[in-house]
Amino acid sequence: MSDLIEGYIGKTTNGKKSRIPAKLDYIQSLTGGFLAIFMWGHMMMVSSILVSKDFMYYVTKFLEGSFIIDGGSPLMVSIFVFIVFVIFVVHAALGMRKLPSNFKQYQVLKAHTKSIQHQDTQLWGYQAFTGFVMFFLGSIHLYIIMTNSADIGPYASADRVWSEWMWPLYIALLLAVEFHGTIGLYRLCIKWGWFDGKDPQATRKRLKKVKWALTGFFLTLGFAALIVYMKIGMEHADKVGEKYVPTSMIKEAK
């Protein structure tokens, strides 16, 4: 009943303003913060390929839970991806509230951003645009990984990147996620005044620097890893489907 009353009358059953907008704002920050930090960890794992194929192989096995189950199980990965997917959808649903939702809003946002030349307004524009892009690209990536969690590894992943044509999508998704995530973390700190201290303006300048450094760092790492996967994928193109066998096992077999 309270949903009906709150929906129609705009007041809770004890006559107060709904507390939900506060919760939504909070959950938006919580899910955004989680996704952004998760993306750091994710990038570290992805870029394990920069060390060696063996290293990437063992990182994958570790994430499949090889420390609990002998040999690991991709199901662990599927379950984890599903949880991330749910958080992603919740975050996107909340982010939608802020996007321009009709032509008039879009028109004034565009005219204003162009006219005022204000960096943080511009950055929000990028955040909104990249957020919109990720509705599609993020969903595709998450669904594929969730349903193909057994096919993660030095060859399987490289085949997906190259022979299964994921590289164009990954280029766009990498740009979108790194811009969106780092701008988002910067905004998160400002929004809640976390590091304001005595001189909020000085803090903001510092946060901005850290933000650009992070954007640069993760984009460099991301593209370096992507290029390596593309190269491996290209070289492995005639053997698609073959799984990677770590060097140590090859030796044992001899």
């Binding site: 107060k16 303003k17 507390r19 907008p21 506060a22 509230r97 005022i116 929000w124 929004k191």
Partner: peptide, 18 residues
Amino acid sequence: YELIGDDNGIFGCMSLLS
């Protein structure tokens, strides 16, 4: 909260800092 506890108030601010 009764005055600004919604998306027309404090929770509408997108921290653009303009």
